[in-house]
Amino acid sequence: MNKFKNKPILILAAFAIALSSLSACHSDDKEKQDQQAEEQTQAAAETPTVELVPVTKGKLSSSISIPGELIPYQQVDLYAKVNSYVKKLLVDIGSEVHAGQLLVVLEAPEINSQLAGAQSRIKQYEAVYYASKATYDRLVSTSKTPGTISLNDLEQAEAKKNADMANVEAAKSALKEVSANLAYLEIRAPFDGVITSRNVNLGAYVGPGGKGSDPLFTLQDQNRLRLVVSVPENYTGSLSNKSEVNFTIKALPNEKFTAQVKRMAGALDEKLRAERLEMDVYNKSKKLLPHMFAEVNVPLPDGDSTFVVAKTAVATSTEKVFVIKVVNNKAQWVDVKKGLTSGDMMEIFGDLKPGDKLVKVASDEIRNGSNVKEKQ
């Protein structure tokens, strides 16, 4: 009877032992799987799988966007040459004038007095000259009779005549000088343009322009403007005076303008470390105004054949710029310099040759000399 009573207990004990053995086996399998996964992760970290791209030679065209300024093709501040008063004002701000057009008439009474005095001196010296010339002519005529006039007297008379003639010429030169000053009382436009400032009124006293003094007028040629930009030193080697640029103006956001490079400075500005470029902009519609700011797109033509790679293949650390070349499944860092960029492509310069294989997505996590595996 006791034998049958203990049978359930034995069955339960056997079932518990079986469960314990199964749990232990399952635990061992899980540890093995975790260990294998960890080993695979470590192996992948030590030997990363990378996509490789070949180094190729090519030419890359690009452009840079830099700020520029529109300035008048010609601009001049007009001052009075002599001390005088404003007698007539014939133009005002906004007046369109032509070359040679009279702008203002000045008045200087003392110049008229100087002119009259110069004319009187000419007549005075001419009278003296005519008298000395008549004396010399008579002596020459008399000297034809031998022994009547000494040679010394004849030479003295000739010298007196020449001196009086010199005085006449000097008086005429003085008259021209005064006449020139008289001409300065009329100020005319030196070229076609627009009067953009006026700083005088009728009756104002004006004089020669000096430091800090305001001009009578400012005249600008606005039919043609200069678009001026300063190109940074890094890009000056790719510039061409045959390039055509596009630019936009904030005041006219829906319009695009074009201009051709006409003048290059050929030297760098010491402060900006940039080269000055000038483009001629024809402004017949008068939409553009001098001293407007422009956003200029300057093309950088392709140069000699260089190495062209994807931007992602170039890595930058705190110390260097480099690409990762793969040789026999080993990574090699190669120092390079960046060139032009266009879209996703970039020029590079370094110790490379066509056909070298580079890591397409480079980073400093792939250490120099580490093993890599090419992605299939």
Rank of each mutant, 00 (worst) to 15 (best):
N152E: 15
V200A: 01
N241D: 12
E347C: 06
S84E: 02
M165G: 11
G193T: 03
F307R: 01
H26Y: 13
W333R: 01
T236Y: 08
M292D: 01
E155N: 07
L89P: 10
E38C: 10
S238Q: 09
V128G: 11
A24S: 15
Q222F: 07
L252F: 14
Y130E: 15
L115M: 13
F307A: 03
A24R: 12
A157P: 02
W333Y: 04
V334S: 03
S240M: 07
K88D: 15
P54M: 09
K337N: 15
N112H: 08
L139Y: 02
S197W: 06
L239M: 08
A259P: 04
K123I: 08
G58R: 04
S317H: 01
V334T: 06
V128A: 15
M345G: 04
P146E: 15
S240T: 05
V361D: 09
T218W: 01
S342Y: 11
L12R: 10
E169K: 15
V359F: 00
A99M: 12
G210F: 09
N234E: 14
F191S: 11
S63P: 07
V82K: 03
E110V: 13
G339K: 02
N201G: 12
V86P: 00
Y282C: 07
M264C: 11
V308G: 04
K133M: 13
Q220Y: 10
T248N: 04
Q33T: 03
A127P: 09
N167P: 08
K144F: 00
